[in-house]
């Protein structure tokens, strides 16, 4: 349960284990003023070209380059749908999980996605946050250092730099 203002609550209805269907998710580099169904399979997925590690497609005549991005380990992506739109801002709101995802396809306009892109970096954040706030013992330091270069670099600055 999360509150957005002091007066109203948003309730999240969790599905029972394994009930919510897995859905392919595309993160587009544009805002589409449309809320509702879209013929993704017919128009989009059918025209995606896979070339080595890069995917290409076009949307509305513009070239996109994409990459699959995994959700951080231990995390699940949720697609939420509001059950009933409240009439006023004071009313409580209820959203249910309509589907789940553990990866998404991240699309960039013309340029290939890179590790400098915020969405790609964001996926590293949980690991990073955990590492930063972890209690340091000789044993787990070695383990943490070996898992990720970014974390290792950060640790170096935090603990090793004189």
């Amino acid at each position: 349960m999360t509150s957005i203002s002091s007066d109203s609550l948003i309730r999240l209805q969790l599905p029972s284990a394994g009930q919510a269907p897995r859905a392919p998710v595309h993160l587009m580099p544009c805002e589409i003023e449309h809320n509702g169904p879209a013929r993704i399979t017919e128009y989009f997925s059918a025209t995606v070209k896979d070339c080595k590690h890069e995917q290409t497609v076009s949307f509305r005549g513009r070239g996109l380059k994409g990459q699959e991005v995994n959700c951080p380990q231990g995390y699940t992506g949720l697609i939420l749908k509001e059950v009933n739109r409240p009439g006023s801002e004071e009313e409580d709101r209820t959203v249910r999980v309509s589907s789940v995802f553990d990866k998404l396809t991240y699309w960039n306009l013309e340029t290939p996605p890179s590790s400098d892109d915020t969405i790609v970096m964001a996926m590293d954040w949980p690991d990073l946050a955990e590492a930063v706030s972890a209690d340091i013992t000789k044993g787990n330091l070695k383990k943490i250092l070996s898992t990720n270069q970014i974390i290792a670099t950060l640790f170096y600055y935090r603990y090793m730099d004189p």
């Binding site: 805002e31 449309h34 005549g61």
Partner: peptide, 25 residues
């Protein structure tokens, strides 16, 4: 999606139709 790739999206004919009848992007 506007049109299949058979259509030249850069043509004003296609753009005008999409502006009037498709979701704005």
């Amino acid at each position: 999606f506007g049109y299949p790739q058979f259509v030249r999206f850069s043509w004003s004919t296609a753009q005008t139709l999409m502006e009037n009848k498709s979701a704005a992007v």
